[in-house]
Simulated scan of single mutants.
Amino acid sequence: MHNYKELEVWKESIKFCPEIYKLVRKLPEEEKFGLISQLKRAVISIPSNIAEGSAKSSDKHFIIFLENSLGSCYEIETQLLVCVELSFITEIEYNQIMEKLFSIIKKLIKFIKYLNDKNK
Protein backbone atom coordinates (compact mmCIF):
# COMPACT_ATOMS: atom_id res chain seq x y z
CA MET A 1 0.00 0.00 0.00
CA HIS A 2 1.06 3.57 -0.70
CA ASN A 3 0.47 6.76 1.25
CA TYR A 4 -1.32 8.73 -1.45
CA LYS A 5 -0.82 12.03 0.38
CA GLU A 6 2.92 11.69 -0.19
CA LEU A 7 2.61 11.08 -3.93
CA GLU A 8 3.57 14.11 -6.03
CA VAL A 9 1.02 13.19 -8.69
CA TRP A 10 -1.77 13.20 -6.09
CA LYS A 11 -0.64 16.56 -4.70
CA GLU A 12 -0.49 18.07 -8.17
CA SER A 13 -3.89 16.69 -9.13
CA ILE A 14 -5.44 18.17 -5.96
CA LYS A 15 -4.03 21.57 -6.89
CA PHE A 16 -5.37 21.15 -10.41
CA CYS A 17 -9.01 20.81 -9.26
CA PRO A 18 -9.51 24.54 -8.52
CA GLU A 19 -8.11 25.36 -11.97
CA ILE A 20 -10.96 23.50 -13.63
CA TYR A 21 -13.53 24.85 -11.18
CA LYS A 22 -12.43 28.41 -12.04
CA LEU A 23 -12.54 27.65 -15.75
CA VAL A 24 -16.06 26.21 -15.73
CA ARG A 25 -17.41 29.41 -14.17
CA LYS A 26 -16.83 30.94 -17.62
CA LEU A 27 -19.02 28.38 -19.37
CA PRO A 28 -22.65 29.18 -20.20
CA GLU A 29 -25.31 28.28 -17.62
CA GLU A 30 -26.89 25.96 -20.20
CA GLU A 31 -23.82 23.71 -19.82
CA LYS A 32 -24.52 23.17 -16.11
CA PHE A 33 -25.55 19.56 -16.68
CA GLY A 34 -23.25 19.02 -19.65
CA LEU A 35 -19.65 20.17 -19.91
CA ILE A 36 -19.56 21.81 -16.47
CA SER A 37 -20.73 18.68 -14.70
CA GLN A 38 -18.49 16.42 -16.80
CA LEU A 39 -15.37 18.53 -16.22
CA LYS A 40 -15.97 18.74 -12.47
CA ARG A 41 -16.52 15.00 -12.13
CA ALA A 42 -13.49 14.17 -14.27
CA VAL A 43 -11.10 16.48 -12.42
CA ILE A 44 -12.17 15.18 -9.02
CA SER A 45 -11.79 11.61 -10.18
CA ILE A 46 -8.06 12.08 -10.83
CA PRO A 47 -6.94 12.43 -7.18
CA SER A 48 -9.85 10.30 -5.97
CA ASN A 49 -8.76 7.28 -8.03
CA ILE A 50 -5.16 7.73 -6.91
CA ALA A 51 -6.30 7.75 -3.28
CA GLU A 52 -8.65 4.79 -3.70
CA GLY A 53 -6.09 2.76 -5.59
CA SER A 54 -3.43 3.38 -2.96
CA ALA A 55 -5.47 1.31 -0.51
CA LYS A 56 -5.42 -1.77 -2.71
CA SER A 57 -3.38 -4.72 -1.58
CA SER A 58 -1.26 -4.99 -4.72
CA ASP A 59 0.46 -2.71 -7.20
CA LYS A 60 -1.43 -4.51 -9.97
CA HIS A 61 -4.72 -3.31 -8.54
CA PHE A 62 -3.29 0.15 -7.82
CA ILE A 63 -2.27 0.47 -11.48
CA ILE A 64 -5.88 -0.03 -12.56
CA PHE A 65 -6.90 3.01 -10.52
CA LEU A 66 -3.95 5.02 -11.81
CA GLU A 67 -5.06 4.16 -15.33
CA ASN A 68 -8.56 5.36 -14.43
CA SER A 69 -7.00 8.66 -13.32
CA LEU A 70 -5.14 8.83 -16.61
CA GLY A 71 -8.40 8.21 -18.46
CA SER A 72 -9.97 11.12 -16.59
CA CYS A 73 -7.08 13.33 -17.72
CA TYR A 74 -7.76 12.46 -21.34
CA GLU A 75 -11.47 13.00 -20.77
CA ILE A 76 -10.70 16.52 -19.52
CA GLU A 77 -8.48 17.17 -22.52
CA THR A 78 -11.30 16.16 -24.87
CA GLN A 79 -13.87 18.25 -23.03
CA LEU A 80 -11.57 21.27 -23.13
CA LEU A 81 -11.12 20.81 -26.87
CA VAL A 82 -14.91 20.85 -27.21
CA CYS A 83 -14.94 24.08 -25.18
CA VAL A 84 -12.47 25.61 -27.63
CA GLU A 85 -14.51 24.43 -30.62
CA LEU A 86 -17.63 26.01 -29.11
CA SER A 87 -15.68 29.22 -28.34
CA PHE A 88 -16.35 28.87 -24.61
CA ILE A 89 -12.62 29.21 -23.90
CA THR A 90 -9.72 30.57 -25.91
CA GLU A 91 -6.74 28.66 -27.28
CA ILE A 92 -4.59 30.50 -24.74
CA GLU A 93 -6.77 29.33 -21.84
CA TYR A 94 -6.72 25.81 -23.26
CA ASN A 95 -2.92 25.81 -23.54
CA GLN A 96 -2.47 27.13 -20.00
CA ILE A 97 -4.69 24.43 -18.53
CA MET A 98 -3.20 21.72 -20.73
CA GLU A 99 0.32 22.54 -19.56
CA LYS A 100 -0.75 21.66 -16.02
CA LEU A 101 -2.74 18.64 -17.15
CA PHE A 102 0.16 17.28 -19.22
CA SER A 103 2.36 17.47 -16.14
CA ILE A 104 -0.11 15.23 -14.28
CA ILE A 105 -0.35 12.89 -17.28
CA LYS A 106 3.44 12.53 -17.43
CA LYS A 107 3.63 11.77 -13.71
CA LEU A 108 0.87 9.17 -13.94
CA ILE A 109 2.50 7.44 -16.91
CA LYS A 110 5.88 7.45 -15.18
CA PHE A 111 4.40 6.06 -11.94
CA ILE A 112 2.47 3.34 -13.79
CA LYS A 113 5.64 2.36 -15.64
CA TYR A 114 7.60 2.31 -12.38
CA LEU A 115 5.04 0.02 -10.70
CA ASN A 116 4.87 -2.26 -13.74
CA ASP A 117 8.69 -2.52 -13.94
CA LYS A 118 8.95 -3.10 -10.19
CA ASN A 119 6.62 -6.07 -10.37
CA LYS A 120 8.13 -7.88 -13.36
Rank of each mutant, 00 (worst) to 15 (best):
M1T: 05
H2N: 11
N3Q: 04
N3Y: 00
Y4N: 07
L7D: 12
E8M: 03
S13E: 06
I14T: 03
I14R: 08
I14Y: 00
P18E: 00
E19H: 10
E19P: 02
K22N: 09
R25K: 15
P28A: 10
E30K: 11
E31G: 02
E31L: 03
E31S: 03
F33C: 09
F33V: 08
F33D: 12
L35P: 00
V43I: 07
I46T: 00
I46D: 02
P47K: 02
P47N: 09
S48V: 03
N49L: 04
I50F: 04
E52L: 12
S54H: 09
S54Q: 11
S54M: 10
K56L: 15
H61K: 12
H61Q: 12
F62W: 06
I63G: 06
F65I: 07
L66P: 02
E67A: 08
Y74R: 14
Y74S: 14
E75R: 04
V84C: 10
L86V: 08
F88H: 10
I89V: 08
T90M: 12
T90G: 15
T90Y: 11
E93T: 15
Y94S: 09
Q96E: 12
M98W: 07
E99L: 11
E99S: 10
L101Y: 13
F102G: 08
I104P: 01
K106I: 10
K107M: 11
I109W: 08
F111G: 01
F111C: 04
I112K: 15
I112Q: 13
L115D: 03
L115H: 04
D117Q: 15
D117M: 14
N119Q: 11
K120T: 15
